[in-house]
Every structure is written in C-alpha cells, then in structure tokens.
Design a protein around this nucleic acid. Structure first.
Length: 414
RNA sequence: AGAGAGGUGGCCGAGUGGUCGAAGGCGCUCGCCUGGAACGCGGGUAUAGGGCAACCUAUCGAGGGUUCGAAUCCCUUCCUCUCUGCCA
C-alpha cells in the first residue's frame, strides 16, 4: 500500500511518479479526498466518544452521593445512538478507502525507465556469449529420444499446462534445486522450508490480493490458496512483527512449487514447459532497513546472475520499464536466459525491491530510536527451476542429440 | 474429527461490570550508591491515530452484541494445550 500521509502532503510528486505505471491521477485524487474525509469523520466520532466516556465516569460518583441518575442515563443513551450512527459512516468510509488504496500499485523508483511494454525495458548488461552451434539447435520439447518431458501424461493427470519430468530430467531438476540452495546459502541466504498453502491475509500483505485473485488456485470451501511464489510465505513470516534491528537484514532462500492459473496468458507459450500451472522455483527474500535495501537489491541481482554464469548459461540483465513493472514493485531487474532453440532471451528470474509497500500492508517493522519504522522487503527468483532446466537442455545440446551436464552440477548427479 | 481447558503488556501472571491501558514479579533502561561491579533504593518502560500542547480516541486473539459504562456478561470465529479417534 502506498503511504496515504505522503499522498496527502506530496500529492503532485506521487501522482507524477505513478504516471509511469499508468495510474489515473483522478483515482489518486479520490483516494486523497477519501483519506481526508476519513480523518474528519474520525474527529467527529472521537469527540462523541470522549463525551460518552467522561460522563459515564460520573455514575459511580452520583450513586455514592445518592443523586438521581435517570436524566444522565437518558442523555447518554441518546449519545450512544449518535455514536453508532457516526461509527457506521466511518466504517463505510474506511471500506471505500481500502477498496481504492489496496488497488493502487507501488510508486516506481526515479531511475525506472518510462515505457509501456516489454520493448521499453532497458538492457543493462549481457553475461556470457551466445553459443554457436554447428547444427540447428532444437527446442527443449524436441528431445523425444531422451524421453525427458512427458507432456501428454501431465495433461492426463491434471490438465493442459501440466507436465511430467522423467529420467535424467527428473534427476537434473533435483540436482538444480540442491545446487541453487547451496549456492544461495553460501552467499548468506538462510534456507527455509515453508507451506505451499496460505491464507487471504498473507496474499493481501504481499499484494497478490485483492487485485489478482483470478491468477490464484483457491482451495474449495476454505479461505486458502496455493502459493504463486515463495515470496508470499517467506515475506509473511514476519507479518505483524517488530523485528529486532540487529537481526536485519534478514536474507532467506527457499525452494517451493509455485501455482499460477495464467489467466491472462491464453495462447501464449502453449507448447513446452515455459509456462506451466505448477513450476518449481528457488526464491530469495530479504527484509532490510530502508537505507540498505538498494545494496541488498544489487546483491540479489548479482547472486542470481552469478548463479546463471556458474551454470554456463548466457543471459542478460534488463531493467523493467514503468509499464512492465509488477503491482508491488518499485524497481525490478529481470534476468533473461538465452534459449538457442527459440533464438531469443526468455525471463528466468526477476528481482524486485518493493520498498515499504509490502511492509505497510504486512505491518513488518523494526525499532529504531524507540520508534517503529517500516522495513523494506525484496524478493527475487534465484531461478525458476523449470526454465533453468530448459535452458540447460537447449544450451548444452550436442550434435548427436544428447545433452551435456554443466560442470557444477556433476557432484549433484552422482 | 469429538470432549475438555485456555488465549491479558518483551516474558510470567493478577484481574469477573465503574477513574483498568490494566496489580505484582521478571527483564530492560536511567539516576543514586561503589574504586568498579553485584546487592539495595528511586524513576521510566505497548502500539496506532488525532492535536502546537495539555490531552483525546482505539486496542486485553479477531468480529459482533448487551450496558450509561466490558479485559470482565452473551454470540460467532480463529488459534493453543490435554484426552479420544484418524493419519504421512
């Protein structure tokens, strides 16, 4: 959630910044109006409550002195009705405000490039050269002889966009997960194992709800959802907590399966396992003091990029433009891995700084100078495991149709 | 899943309708004491919002209700513990 007090005080500045994310300033105007109305309404209610409280305290005194209390009682019964009425309108104002506020995206950083779509993203750097092949490289689904991926049976078990890994691919996936977790742990990210099912509050806190419920798998009959990313459980570990400042920064890594309905992606990447309803991902999450979140952000980007480099996978770093930025992100750098079969770079990791956007929703704070301040939260895929597997298959394919194994994974495949 | 017990401040724990935001203790912290420390003594020690401030409002798991007034009574719900059942 954006800071409503800041919106009140620096309206023009915030409205201008949110232009990058295509947020209508009329909506922001309405939000500000609503916030002011709410404040005024609160003042009205509170003075009535103050009166009620003060006069209620007279009863014991009256009774002690043997005074008549019927008139006072009547007056307060009346006042009570007024309070109920004002409370009702306050509640309405509050829920209206929430409805707007929870749907306003985070404010992009100053250095986020302007632009509406993917083409406007800015390449920061390329790492490793694109490999040359002496033969036309195949796409990852063209390795029938090796029987790596069974798309048909995945569909039989579940539905489209599900698949089954077999033989060396299944082992490679597990090797990758272990390798990634070890890699991250060596760089200071502590390994955590978290639930794959979370409640509404958790998804509200990280920003997937209320806006993106259509993208989530919901457990029927319960207010529970399958996680779309480990960012949700990891960040929510500290929801409604005041973290001792000496514990900061908290840096975590976890492997989880992720579940997404891909509601808006009909027809895209229907072939292969680029876009699945279920995929494995090793995630990085950091909780930091505001002043150190930029440094941690760089660290996370470097960690993910170095991981790809260590696997010998050519990739590039791309700074997302305002229009392509996610709902909760102030700034995002995507890592795109080279897929020879597709002859293009594809997203394999995404590192975001949400600043205090999630922290405000989640009420994650730390104590400084006796005051509680909101932390910054950051998240990033260490790597999407499925896409990484694809990248290895395509980049390490040999002329004879076999696939080599990256050197660093060999110890994990013994 | 069934039966019972319970959820109070950083922690322990008192409080069953009226100056209770909450006794007491522990912890922490400031001051005194000391060469320094322990002990001892005195003070402070939740969060959010509003107000220049005095101060006001809300919060005793959450939500609703009764009442002039609720931590205390009623309802709903979540969670924890114990026993029984089931289960990887």
């Amino acid at each position: 959630m954006i800071d409503l007090k800041a919106l009140e005080n620096n309206f023009d500045e915030i409205a201008a910044k949110l232009q990058k994310k295509k947020v209508d300033s009329a909506l922001l105007e309405a939000l500000k109006e609503q916030a002011l109305k709410l404040k005024a309404q609160k003042a009205v209610l509170e003075s009535l409550q103050a009166e009620q409280n003060a006069k209620s305290k007279l009863f014991p005194l009256y009774q002690k002195e043997g005074k008549d209390i019927t008139a006072l009682k009547k007056e307060l019964a009346q006042n009570k009705q007024n309070i109920a009425k004002e409370q009702e309108s306050l509640r309405e104002l509050e829920s209206d405000l929430q409805k707007i506020a929870l749907n306003v995206p985070n404010i992009p950083d100053a250095d986020v490039p302007a632009g509406d779509e993917e083409e406007d993203n800015v390449e920061i750097k390329k790492v490793l050269d694109i490999p040359e092949f002496s033969f036309p490289p195949k796409e990852h689904w063209d390795f029938e002889a090796l029987d790596f991926i069974d798309f048909e049976r995945g569909v039989k078990l579940s539905k489209s966009r599900f698949s089954v890994l077999k033989h060396q691919a299944a082992r490679l996936e597990r090797a990758l997960i272990n390798y990634m977790l070890d890699f991250n742990r060596e760089r200071g990210f502590e390994e955590v194992s978290v639930p794959y099912i979370v409640n509404r509050d958790s998804l509200l806190a990280t920003g997937q709800l209320p806006k993106f419920e259509d993208d989530l798998f919901k457990i029927e009959g319960e207010e529970l959802f399958l996680i779309p990313t480990a960012e949700v459980p990891l960040t929510n570990l500290y929801r409604d907590e005041i973290v001792p400042s000496e514990q900061l920064p908290i840096m975590m890594t976890a492997f989880t399966a992720c579940f997404r309905k891909e509601a808006g992606s009909a027809g895209r990447d229907t072939r292969g396992m680029i876009r699945q309803h279920q995929f494995g991902k090793v995630e990085l999450v950091a909780i930091t003091k505001p002043e150190e979140s930029d440094a941690i952000f760089d660290k996370m980007v470097t960690c993910a990029s170095d991981l790809l480099t260590s696997l010998g996978l050519p990739h590039r770093q791309v700074m997302l433009c305002g229009g392509d930025l996610g709902f909760g992100a102030a700034k995002t750098i995507d890592l795109e891995v080279w897929l020879p079969g597709q002859n293009r770079y594809r997203e394999i990791s995404s590192v975001s700084n949400t600043r205090d956007f999630q922290a405000r929703r989640a009420q994650i704070r730390y104590k400084e100078e006796k005051k509680n301040r909101l932390v910054h939260t950051l998240n990033g895929s260490s790597l999407a495991v499925g896409r990484c597997l694809i990248a290895i298959i395509e980049n390490y394919q040999q002329a004879d149709g076999s696939v080599a194994v990256p050197q660093v994974l060999k110890p994990y495949l013994q």
